[in-house]
Design a binder for these strands. Sequence first.
DNA 1: CTTATATAGTTGCACATACAACTAACGACC
DNA 2: GGTCGTTAGTTGTATGTGCAACTATATAAG
Lengths: 144, 144
Amino acid sequence: MLSRHVYAMILEAFLYIDDGDHRVLRQFGLTPTQFSALKQLDVADGRRLTDLTELLLVDKSTVTRLIDRLEQAQLVRRVPDPDDRRAQRVVLTPVGLECREQARAAHELSIVQRMSDLSASEQQQLVVLLEKLCAPLRVKSTPS
Amino acid sequence: MLSRHVYAMILEAFLYIDDGDHRVLRQFGLTPTQFSALKQLDVADGRRLTDLTELLLVDKSTVTRLIDRLEQAQLVRRVPDPDDRRAQRVVLTPVGLECREQARAAHELSIVQRMSDLSASEQQQLVVLLEKLCAPLRVKSTPS
DNA sequence: CTTATATAGTTGCACATACAACTAACGACC
DNA sequence: GGTCGTTAGTTGTATGTGCAACTATATAAG
């Protein structure tokens, strides 16, 4: 059955991508999730944990513990939100910024390499097809 | 950058698929991993834990604990391997077989539904492109 | 203002996952 | 037939993940 084959290939492609991400980021002592979180932060205002929940599409309890570990590793800091005493803002430390930038460069490069078996037009086709597949997901977030 | 876009869409497609799998299998009290394991088992000879490690592409310690839980749930049984005293064979219980068959039917149906936004020819294109992307993975396992 | 509801975040519990260290048994080599 | 490297499986430790219950604060309703 064809649709089973598509299903299987999406899972395989994810494994391929995910495995590559682990390898690259491991050199910087980061997991893919930690790297995703660092990408959403800055050294100034930072973000609330709830913001990260929405950006990373994970449960708030996951974010709590993720930030716990990044804080232990001195890559981020929790600072009280000035406008809401319930909330905390998470900001990058200088070490965290440096770590993220190095990881980002290596990760970008690895993506280009891993995609290099597809031509630009094939990559374009793939994007179009996957967007069509995921269209049901986007119904709610596409207002007009 | 185009390759970043492909990367992002593969992750999004995986999230879409994985979320759907969770929802469907949850009705049968199974996680996607547990379901994958049940699909590899039978009621007769079964499989060794090591076989499952290779089939599921996870660490052997993951398989140990996965089978622990399936055994607690009475869906599988460990039986000693007659030919190798180090090994154990994992077989489905009648309950496990019944559970798997029901889950399988629902899962198959849901895959067809989730793919239904793509035409057959689009699905075919997607398979071709993803196979090309994953070609580096298959180098080792493609003898001729 | 008080009450009721909603939101921000943490914690307990369960499952998935990898890596490393370990035990037990297999196999090969002499 | 002992010794030694290999393999099967388990266990400890760390991370990621979701759900549910909980605390504290904010906000709306009256």
